[in-house]
Design a protein around this nucleic acid. Sequence first.
RNA 1: GUGCUCGUAGUUCAAUGGUAGAGCGCAGCCUUGUGGUGGCUGAUGUUGCGGGUUCGAAUCCCGUCGGGCACCCCA
Length: 456
Amino acid sequence: MAKPTRLSGFPELLPSGRVIEQYLLDVARQVFELHGFLSLETRAVEPIENLQGGEIAKEIYVLRRMHAADGEADPGLGLHFDLTVPFARYVLENSAQLEFPLRRYQIQKVWRGERPQDGRFREFTQADIDVVGSGALAFHHEIEMAVVMSTLLAKLPIPPAIIQVNNRKLAEGFYLGVGATDTQGVLRAIDKLDKIGADRVRVLLEAEAGLTREAAAKCIQLASIKTPDATFVDQVRALGVQNDLLDEGLNELAAVVAGANAERPGSVVADLRIARGLDYYTGTVYETQLVGFESVGSISSGGRYDNLASDGKQSYPGVGISLGVSRLVSVLIGRDLVSVSRAVPSAVLVAVSDEASRPASELVARQLRNRGISCEVAPSADKFGKQIRFADRRGIPFVWFPGAVQRESPEGDTVKDIRTGDQVPADATKWAPPIDDLTPRVFSTIVTTAVSEESS
RNA sequence: GUGCUCGUAGUUCAAUGGUAGAGCGCAGCCUUGUGGUGGCUGAUGUUGCGGGUUCGAAUCCCGUCGGGCACCCCA
């Protein structure tokens, strides 16, 4: 290898960062499995035409064989862009062997060719959950997705997160109701409200989406509605737009907000400016902001899709939501919102008196490991002061001193808590560290109020 | 991919175009087998990298890589 160099958009974590990431992944897996989601993994590559969802050109990394011959056909493969589209393909391919509705979680890397920015990478990890039905999928799963993600977020040592929910039927019905023909165009313009402001969006709506002045104004008014409960319905009705699809969307969104907040109060708000870039969503759409860190964008999003997977005879509607693990980790690390008790798994460093007695130290380590206590043996028989410092640097809380080397007698062994200085006699077949010291701990450095636990 | 901006010791930051520095951290000793506080001593580096202008470049110019921002898009 030549000189190692960082690669833009392909971040690598230091050991302590990886501890944080792994902790999030562990909690995610635990919460997902508690809710009955099974685990799946799909291949990293897909035929490019599968990845494109709609016709919009995505930032897809294309795969090419280095030694491809001149005339060799292009395999047309690309790295997957998200986990939902590959999952839909997987469902179609294996539908005969799967049970529906299928609840699955999937935690994998995905790749996008976009220019990297704060919290935005070219390679990052997503933790997805989806429920997919065969032919039909009950609406209540659209509530469930918000509840599961909210439950997960509440268990993590992170600032409060709020899931913002909208509904494609509501938006599309409203746009049709005011006379729009290019509802996608309207959606795209509305999506820019935060960035370019109402005035410029109004211009866009009139010029590009072909709306009348009044229609554009109403679309902007719609997008400004945001309520923590179902009262948004009255506000939308007050705009006086009539459309069946709109009514359907209003009912669904009201049900999601009411249903999710009934289970997890304050977890969800109706925010009618949420648009979502992906065009395959057909119902509820989700985005999630970290309170106080809105500028990094959504840390979790998803939605309902009715037409993503279909083999012509049977369709497989689904709903899913995805946690942006890499983005969340980068925010937590970049702003010092969490810290870790140590970056290594070892709870104990077994000191070595001299090289001749190293086997005695190894025996102690083996006895601790047999009882599930992570430990390592000092790499060299330095002065004990140095060995203690070795542990201190790594955050290893305990140093074990084997007693005088006198065969098969653990007597004389002592273990020292180097944080307090307490040193006590100990038996490697019986001693155990406090439960909190058994594995590295990840804790929030800002939230002083306890992370709200279950409300159910 | 386009545009803007930043890049100095492990780290946080200094240095009018004129000898590259400070705090923290690190190493050694005070401390002959138990760290942290304290004292003394010491090393930090091809100023991201490559070119160019200049008697002379950390400083100005070009390119490139990396960080950030905006566009685009989105976890």
